[in-house]
Write a protein that binds this DNA or RNA. Sequence first.
DNA 1: AGCGTAAACTTAACGGCGTTAACATCGCAC
DNA 2: GTGCGATGTTAACGCCGTTAAGTTTACGCT
Lengths: 226, 226
Amino acid sequence: MPNSKSPRASYHHGDLANALTVAATELARTGGPEAVVLREAARKVGVSATAAYRHFEGRGELIHAVKELALTELAARMQDELATSEPVPDPPAEALRRLRALGTGYIRFALAEPGLFRTAFCRADTPGMESEPVDMLGTRSFQMLVETLDTLVGCGWIPPDRRPYLELAAWSTVHGMADLLLDGPLRLCPPDQQEAAIQRALDMVADGIAALAAGHAGPAKVGPAP
Amino acid sequence: MPNSKSPRASYHHGDLANALTVAATELARTGGPEAVVLREAARKVGVSATAAYRHFEGRGELIHAVKELALTELAARMQDELATSEPVPDPPAEALRRLRALGTGYIRFALAEPGLFRTAFCRADTPGMESEPVDMLGTRSFQMLVETLDTLVGCGWIPPDRRPYLELAAWSTVHGMADLLLDGPLRLCPPDQQEAAIQRALDMVADGIAALAAGHAGPAKVGPAP
DNA sequence: AGCGTAAACTTAACGGCGTTAACATCGCAC
DNA sequence: GTGCGATGTTAACGCCGTTAAGTTTACGCT
């Protein structure tokens, strides 16, 4: 059986598409989206650059393959995070626990694999390639978030009329925080400060959602009396 | 006085650095960061590509110039938004109004000028260029946010121990939402749905902060009884 | 078995990019 | 007025993505 080892034995590779994808993923892991260079991936696999075009439309499609791989890793990291704290019996409390764990997992993945994270959500840059930047909605990670919020509606914690777009609001905060940590002002802060910022953001989300549960009549257009 | 008009009159341009910056900004406005191509900017100005190196270290520094310009426009847009609603006399309510306006302005700028917005916050990609991705903290827009939150602390609305990192949490949400609107699942939604998502996110921030004001004892680790 | 076709790879080449090196032109201080 | 430094020029290098045209192999068909 042909193998991806050094100067390969047979003319035909046998699994080039996969080999290129993992090579490209390794490049992305190290250097982010702009590091996934078609020629370099081919070089790593030991194949001519143009061979890639038998399996991918171009660089854009290669990046897209990396994206899918990265998104899978992201979902796994979030899933893992669910297991790092104990489930609680009370259903709404359990859903809130899950919500927080999902956000934490998301951000931890971004910190642990910045290259992959950036690639997963990058606007595929160079060529024509306006191919879907990623159908986030179909993503496993996004589904987990949606399900958790639905649970909170299901058990009466969130009024159904407050449900719409809530997943996007929550996602925004977590995704934005990841961005800030990677490229923003927090990028060179000591880890404990980063952690504090993360927790503060998650608090804000939890409190914002709890406000709905507390049934307060609407978005705070005017504050309560001091 | 020499001018940036077509085939320029004199050998020396007279204001190349500026001319290149605005040309590059125009490219960014249209096509985002990857569209700011040094050679193209030079071409637009009617000058050889290498002339740019008399004024910029390379493409990275050119992009950086665009970033600063874009950030100025962003701050202006946020400032404008402050004027679109009436000030209210009650100081905390006024601060909350400003908070909301700043977020709205931020997102509106992103929607109105996606190319500039993306460039403002892009990790300058191609060359060595790890030069500061932008010192967001020094940014006028960030300062406005900080001041507003400080006001809320000043008038006793936010307990001082809850103040740290709050600006980052709020910024995260707004920035993340802008990202989602530009490249995420909301990118091709009709504007009214986009607007709804924006308002929901801003509600969440406001409610999350209001929860601090309401003095509830901590981040909702366990929900209130249903 | 043998053969032919199509899939999987190759080399060669094009144009565009960022960047360097070497040369040309201008303006201003002396 | 002249010379020198700042500001522009052309030429060239190496890398990239991509296309075109040729080569090698696997495999189904008779």
